[in-house]
Write a protein that binds this DNA or RNA. Structure first.
Lengths: 156, 156
DNA sequence: ATAATTTAGTTGACCTATCAACGGAAAATG
DNA sequence: CATTTTCCGTTGATAGGTCAACTAAATTAT
């Protein structure tokens, strides 16, 4: 397969150049693949993986921060965090200065689960980024940034 | 807000430059906004909108083609198509040469629903694309393409 | 201080998405 | 031409995502 067979036939069509259409399409594929990898390695679900990954990087965070970092739904996040706490993957401690907050940290169990699948996930990431030059990637991220900003600066 | 408040504080972190992380994050926001617009205009759901949009462009298609165009799940698509047929938004006719296929076309009702929300969706699209030059957009799409190809050329 | 507003997180109800298993029809193989 | 294989689509079971309503704590305003 030299290139996407599915795009060849009808690629002249307008919607195929549409931004959100293309993003969604790629996103659907990437999510499915990531979920597959995690399943193959008896890892966490994709959502839980993302939470663990953030807590692994940040050392400590809160639900609200994860919401703003990911744009996930806070309801769902609340439920996933409860489950992860119950599984011993993360720890939750009430904040001393603000009793509404829960300070979240990754546990040793969580870190181990994270590190078990990390190589496969990293290999995948490298594979995906392989064909893209530094310069292109910078442009790409910059475009994402500006779309993101544009999305923020609008009331619907 | 001069730029994303949420990215300022911790943007030096590794995961913030990660491709799939950034895609997902943006995608989550864009989807939520698109869904909001559709709701505000008493339009179809986002998923149904995408189906209608494709059928509006293609004049005729099949479930399998929409799957390959969008990477949606065929099970869900099957159910949404049934619902849309029941609502009179699209027509489904068995293919004469291949009795497995159903040829799908948008109905007048469907087209009207599509056109009712189209201006708002188009305005949003223009707003999002506004700050991006032709050249950058070309690079952006090219990068998406190569990621997509890379995702295809790997077994997990 | 007290009231109004904002912020952090939880919960319920519902909808959507996903995977796997299946049926029948067409195509490919022998 | 019979049989395996592939392809198109449906269905069941279940997990995940979304919206809105809510409690409680903190902040801001009066």
């Amino acid at each position: 397969m030299t290139r996407d067979s599915e795009t060849v036939e009808r690629e002249a069509l307008g919607f195929n150049k549409n931004l959100t259409y293309r993003l969604t399409r790629l996103q659907n594929k990437l999510n499915a693949q990531a979920a597959q990898i995690l399943r193959n390695h008896d890892g966490p679900t994709l959502t839980d993986w993302r939470i663990l990954r953030i807590l692994n990087s940040l050392k400590q965070s809160t639900l609200a921060e994860i919401v703003s970092l990911t744009n996930m739904d806070k309801g769902q996040l609340s439920r996933r965090i409860s489950a992860l706490v119950e599984q011993g993957m993360i720890h939750a401690q009430p904040d001393v200065d603000d009793f509404r907050k829960q300070n979240l940290t990754i546990s040793e169990t969580g870190r181990a689960a994270h590190e078990r699948v990390l190589p496969a996930m990293r290999a995948r990431r490298n594979h995906l980024a392989n064909e893209i030059s530094e310069e292109e990637y910078a442009t790409f991220l910059s475009v994402l940034d500006r779309i993101n900003t544009a999305a923020n600066n609008r009331d619907f």
